[in-house]
Simulated assay, not measured.
Amino acid sequence: MSAEFAARVPTLWQGQGITRRMTDRLTAGREALAIMDSSTPTAVLSGSPPMTIMVDARAVSITSVVSIAEQIALRKPSVIIAVGGGSILDASKIASLVLAPGRTFDFAIERAAKSALTFLPDAPPPVEVIAVPTTLGTSSETNSVGILRNESGHRLIIGRSLRPRHAIIDARNLMTLSTVAVREGAMEAFLRLAGASTSPQRTIRAKCDAITLGSALLDTASRGDTSPGSRLRLARLSAATQRTAALRGSDPYSARHWYIANEVSFALEARKMVATAAIIAAVWRRICSGDSRWGDRRSLEEFWTTTASGLALPLDPPSGIAALIDRWQIPTPPRPTPRAVASIAAVAERAWANRRPMLAGLVAADFSDLLRDSSWSSQSFGHPDRSSKVRKEVNQ
Score class of each variant (00 low, 15 high):
S2M: 06
V9M: 11
L12N: 06
W13L: 15
R21A: 14
R25F: 14
T27S: 07
T27W: 10
A34M: 14
T42C: 15
A43K: 14
S46G: 15
S48W: 00
S48K: 12
T52V: 09
M54C: 12
D56E: 10
R58S: 14
V65L: 03
E70Y: 06
P77E: 01
G86K: 06
L89A: 06
L89V: 07
L97F: 08
G102T: 08
R103S: 15
F105A: 05
F107L: 15
L117K: 11
L120E: 05
I130H: 07
T134W: 05
T134F: 04
L136G: 01
T142E: 00
R165N: 03
R165S: 14
I168H: 07
I169G: 10
A171R: 07
T176H: 12
L177E: 03
V182G: 04
G185V: 02
M187K: 05
R192D: 02
L193V: 11
A194I: 02
G195H: 03
A196M: 04
Q201D: 10
A210E: 01
G224V: 04
S227E: 11
R231W: 11
L232A: 08
R233L: 15
L237A: 04
S238E: 06
T244D: 01
T244A: 09
T244M: 12
A245W: 12
R248P: 08
G249W: 02
A255V: 08
R256H: 10
I260C: 05
A261N: 00
E263F: 02
F266H: 09
A267G: 11
A270F: 01
A270K: 05
R271H: 11
K272P: 04
M273G: 00
A278H: 13
A281F: 01
A282P: 06
W284T: 04
S289N: 11
R293M: 06
W294C: 06
S299D: 02
S299P: 00
E302Y: 09
W304L: 03
L313I: 11
L315P: 08
P317W: 04
I321R: 04
L324A: 14
P331K: 07
T332C: 06
P334T: 10
R335D: 09
T337P: 08
R339P: 08
A340C: 15
V341P: 12
V341M: 15
I344P: 04
A346I: 01
V347R: 09
D366A: 09
D369H: 14
L370M: 13
R372D: 15
D373I: 11
W376T: 13
Q379R: 15
F381R: 14
G382V: 09
P384K: 11
P384Q: 10
N395Q: 15
